[in-house]
Design a protein around this nucleic acid. Sequence first.
DNA 1: AAACAGATCTACT
DNA 2: GTAGATCTGTTTT
Length: 199
Amino acid sequence: MPGLAEVIEGPVLGVAPRLLGSILSHTTNDGTVAVRLTEVEAYAGHEDPGSHAFRGPTRRNDVMFGPSGHLYVYFTYGMHYCCNLVCGQPGQASAVLLRAGEVVEGLDLARIRRGSARDRDLARGPARLCSALGIDLSHNGLGLRAGATTLRPRDQPHPAGQIGVGPRVGLRRAANHPWRFWLTDEPTVSAYRPAKKLT
DNA sequence: AAACAGATCTACT
DNA sequence: GTAGATCTGTTTT
């Protein structure tokens, strides 16, 4: 099994697809929930107009400018959180947004956290994934070696034939970069809703 | 003090 | 499957 550092450290476009299929586990007082990642998006730091880090470090995105292996959690839509994994060297601010996964442990707890959602929707979408795992702003900056939160890489990356590639979701800028990666034929991959229908 | 950013949920077809 | 309403921390003025 590859070490954690060699999987999550490096050029973000290489790291992102390699994260597919790895197991992210998070333990709180309520218990443990783990998901198998099925969809991610790459954000290339301060050179990427789609990244929160584009305009330089702020109090909110500070974690992204730090070392790899930490969680960057941000708040959105008044009531939701989204979770990124920092993968660049300090100062690069590159990160991978975790967009969807399949709950593989703690199913009962995930169901409680997610209310009336069907099982395949438990972690289908970045904010749903955070909700199922119990991740919120208090986990911003958390290191994956902290014990309560771990990432277990796949022994070998998924074959390229099982990985879909397409533009990132919900961006106003740089929406045309094919920096979204997902496992094909996975029901837990979030639905792709193009901002505008192409004619 | 004011503007911004966005994913989910509900209801409807 | 599609359409529309929703909310608050962060950033900027």
